[in-house]
Amino acid sequence: MRRIADMLDHPAEVVILCGCVSVKVARPGWLLVRLGPEATIEDGERRLICRKCGQRPTLKPKGIWNVTGGRDRRVDPPPMPDWVDLS
């Protein structure tokens, strides 16, 4: 199960692709507000509708490269889920 909430503490985004070549990039928090706290990527693909053409989009979770300073003392978040594309 690919829960959107698992990506919250990570530098990640979800690319929303539609058949009409419409592309939107969303943060996991935005999707959770729209879909609910227990939503999965599959729920988003079933429930979201493209505003331009009315088709169901495809959601592709992606990790974002972040560079922090050498003195960053924050506690590391849990590991990124293995289903998130890091390329």
Rank of each mutant, 00 (worst) to 15 (best):
D6Y: 10
E38F: 07
W65V: 09
P77K: 01
V23G: 03
R3V: 03
C20H: 12
S22P: 01
P61D: 01
L8F: 07
V84T: 06
V67R: 11
G36E: 08
R46D: 13
R46A: 13
R46Q: 12
V15G: 02
V21I: 06
V75Y: 12
C20F: 09
G69Y: 09
R47H: 15
I4K: 03
E42R: 14
L59C: 07
V84K: 01
G54C: 01
S87P: 10
M1D: 10
V67H: 11
I49N: 01
D82Y: 11
R51W: 12
I41H: 07
R71H: 04
K62S: 00
C20I: 04
R47Q: 15
M7G: 00
L32A: 08
D6E: 15
E13C: 15
V75K: 07
P57H: 06
R34P: 01
D72E: 11
S87W: 12
G54E: 05
P57I: 08
L59W: 03
A12G: 00
P78F: 04
V75W: 01
P77S: 08
K62H: 06
D9L: 05
R46W: 10
I16G: 00
C20L: 05
S22G: 13
M1C: 05
T58S: 12
K62E: 06
E42T: 11
L48H: 02
A12P: 00
P28N: 08
V14P: 00
P11C: 13
D85C: 06
P81T: 13
M80A: 08
T68F: 06
L31D: 00
R27S: 12
V25T: 13
A26G: 04
G36Q: 12
G54I: 01
P57M: 09
L86C: 10
